[in-house]
Amino acid sequence: MQKIRTLQANIEVLREKLNKLIEDKDFKLSNREIISLSQELDVLLDDYVKFKNSKFIF
């Protein structure tokens, strides 16, 4: 249960950072920093989904 909570917390922190960065960059979604941070968030979300799905296998 701790792993899922950690993933959720990390996702939320990164999501907030991404939203702030998007505002700071005037909503230019092609900005390299935005793309990079978005990709990091994608990895965390993918890990979260894999972890949640693995719990239903048993």
Rank of each mutant, 00 (worst) to 15 (best):
M1Y: 05
M1S: 10
M1W: 04
Q2E: 07
K3D: 02
K3N: 07
I4G: 00
R5M: 03
R5C: 02
T6K: 01
T6V: 10
T6M: 03
A9T: 06
A9P: 01
N10F: 04
N10Y: 01
I11F: 02
V13M: 08
L14S: 06
R15Q: 12
R15E: 10
R15T: 11
E16S: 10
E16F: 03
E16G: 05
K17G: 04
K17M: 09
K17L: 09
K17E: 11
L18C: 04
L18S: 03
N19L: 08
N19K: 09
K20W: 05
L21C: 07
L21D: 07
I22F: 07
D24I: 11
D24H: 10
D24C: 10
D26Q: 15
D26S: 15
D26A: 15
D26M: 15
F27R: 15
K28H: 15
S30A: 13
S30T: 14
S30P: 02
R32E: 12
E33V: 04
I34F: 12
I34V: 14
I35L: 15
I35V: 15
I35D: 11
S36H: 13
L37I: 12
L37M: 15
L37Y: 15
E40I: 02
E40Y: 08
E40V: 05
L41Q: 01
V43R: 13
V43Q: 13
V43C: 11
L44G: 00
L45T: 09
D47I: 04
V49Y: 08
F51K: 03
F51E: 09
K52G: 00
K52C: 08
N53C: 12
K55L: 11
I57F: 08
I57K: 09
I57W: 05
F58Y: 05
